[in-house]
Computed example of a mutant assay.
Amino acid sequence: MTDSKPVRASQTTITELMIPSYANFGGKIHGGILLSLMDKVAYACASKHAGAYCVTVTVDKVEFLQPVEVGQLVSMHASVNYVGNSSMIVGIRVEAQNVKLGTITHTNSSYFTMVAKGDDDKPTKVPKLILENEEEVRRFVEALRMKEIKTRIREALDDAKSQIELPEARELLKNERCIIDIHLL
């Protein structure tokens, strides 16, 4: 395994035609189809960088900005934005092209955290990431901050789970759109 690789070495684009069987009941491409395709491109990108089999650990910030239509060509552009010891954060930009009109629309963005696995099925070390321009540095720092924020959120939620009591919950939820209907014995 190489000690380091540039971002460009693993950048991956997958383009697929959106067919009628991908459509949901509303006539638009189902979000699950797009997520599956994003997972595929995240795997391809991460495994190219790691030189190993990779698995998806988390999917963050999935934003469906615009609907995707049957007949459009959808391109998923993936790039390794951050590497840890065995983990990588892969940024994905999804674009839909209307070939008749010649228009390209940014429809989705997402971040997939992938972990490289060795032959023993345990996490394995990945190459360092060579950052060759300011955009790559910005994305690495952004991913690092996103990782730190996720850790703080996870810790705060763990604290909240262990501390919530029914009287406090009643007060907290009194202006929310829910009804507490617990019958205590």
Rank of each mutant, 00 (worst) to 15 (best):
61 K>H: 10
155 E>R: 09
172 L>M: 14
102 G>A: 11
77 H>Y: 09
139 R>I: 04
80 V>Q: 01
1 M>S: 14
49 H>Y: 12
13 T>E: 14
45 C>F: 04
23 A>R: 01
48 K>P: 03
88 M>T: 07
76 M>A: 09
8 R>I: 14
90 V>N: 02
92 I>A: 09
68 V>M: 07
88 M>G: 10
3 D>S: 12
10 S>N: 08
30 H>W: 07
75 S>W: 05
50 A>P: 03
14 I>F: 07
2 T>I: 06
26 G>S: 11
59 V>Y: 00
116 A>K: 01
1 M>D: 11
8 R>Y: 06
23 A>M: 01
64 F>E: 00
98 N>S: 15
19 I>Q: 09
98 N>Y: 13
173 L>F: 12
105 T>L: 10
78 A>V: 07
75 S>R: 10
95 E>R: 11
128 K>Y: 03
51 G>Y: 03
105 T>K: 15
111 Y>L: 13
8 R>E: 14
121 D>T: 00
102 G>Q: 06
48 K>A: 12
25 F>H: 11
103 T>R: 12
51 G>S: 06
108 N>G: 11
70 V>S: 04
101 L>R: 14
20 P>D: 13
58 T>W: 01
39 D>T: 01
6 P>L: 03
110 S>M: 08
106 H>C: 12
22 Y>E: 05
89 I>D: 15
180 I>S: 01
179 I>H: 09
161 K>V: 11
128 K>G: 07
9 A>E: 15
55 V>L: 00
168 E>Y: 09
151 T>V: 12
96 A>L: 15
146 M>Q: 15
19 I>F: 08
185 L>C: 06
15 T>S: 15
16 E>M: 12
130 I>M: 14
78 A>L: 02
173 L>E: 06
48 K>Y: 07
46 A>Y: 00
128 K>E: 10
19 I>N: 05
90 V>Y: 03
19 I>M: 14
19 I>T: 13
73 L>W: 04
124 T>V: 15
81 N>M: 05
142 E>Q: 13
80 V>N: 00
88 M>H: 11
30 H>P: 01
113 T>H: 00
34 L>D: 02
70 V>R: 03
69 E>D: 10
59 V>L: 10
59 V>D: 02
40 K>N: 11
14 I>S: 09
112 F>P: 03
64 F>S: 03
21 S>Y: 00
104 I>M: 12
120 D>W: 05
179 I>C: 07
22 Y>L: 07
46 A>K: 02
146 M>C: 08
49 H>L: 13
150 K>C: 06
47 S>I: 04
90 V>E: 04
3 D>T: 08
167 P>V: 02
115 V>H: 00
30 H>S: 13
138 R>K: 08
144 L>F: 06
108 N>Y: 05
135 E>V: 04
129 L>E: 04
144 L>D: 15
60 D>G: 08
11 Q>Y: 03
49 H>N: 09
91 G>Y: 03
2 T>Y: 09
93 R>L: 08
155 E>W: 00
138 R>I: 00
141 V>H: 08
87 S>I: 07
80 V>H: 02
134 E>L: 02
25 F>S: 04
7 V>G: 02
112 F>T: 05
39 D>Q: 03
74 V>F: 04
157 L>I: 13
159 D>G: 05
184 L>G: 07
63 E>Q: 09
115 V>E: 01
145 R>M: 12
89 I>C: 13
164 I>S: 08
46 A>N: 11
